[in-house]
């Protein structure tokens, strides 16, 4: 076990390793659903249009703030599986510097080998969520440099 904060890549590798332990798809889903259930839902006052990452089929909400030069992320979704995946994206990307987020593409979702419907697409809103995180990272970076 590594002491201190893991890099984005290390967290991704850890997640992929974790998923390799599961046998069939239902075990993988049970795990994702458990993660979704564990992630606290946004209070109604945060389920705002401005925090919404609109997907075709499910909604994702995202908030960001800068803490000691690192971006802290919180997220939620109305679909449980998407919420579980949001929890994983937060685990990977939250509390990293803008540079780390900008320079490290997210690969773990594809590596989990779930299905096309769970890859970051327009339909589940994950695609827009990741784009939005990158966008915030660029904006925070510009703000920090100014």
């Amino acid at each position: 076990m590594k002491i201190g904060k893991m890099t984005i890549q290390e967290t991704e590798d850890e997640i992929v390793e974790e998923f390799e332990m599961f046998g069939d798809w239902s075990e993988k889903f049970e795990h994702i659903i458990a993660l979704g259930k564990k992630l606290p839902s946004f209070p109604a006052e945060l389920q705002l249009e401005e925090n919404k990452v609109r997907g075709c089929q499910s909604n994702v909400w995202l908030t960001t703030d800068l803490r000691d030069g690192k971006i802290h992320l919180e997220g939620d979704s109305d679909a449980l599986i998407v919420k579980g995946l949001v929890a994983l994206v937060l685990k990977v990307y939250s509390d990293h510097t803008p540079d780390e987020i900008i320079n490290t593409p997210l690969t773990f979702i594809q590596r989990l080998g779930l299905s096309a419907s769970l890859s970051p697409t327009r339909s589940n809103g994950l695609d827009s969520m990741i784009k939005k995180i990158k966008f915030y990272a660029l904006a925070y970076k510009a703000k920090m440099n100014s």
């Binding site: 659903i33 499910s58 109305d78 679909a79 449980l80 998407v82 299905s115 419907s117 589940n124």
Partner: peptide
Amino acid sequence: GTHPFDIGTMLDF
């Protein structure tokens, strides 16, 4: 108590 997206995604499997 369920979201259609979750049902569709899991039925695929």
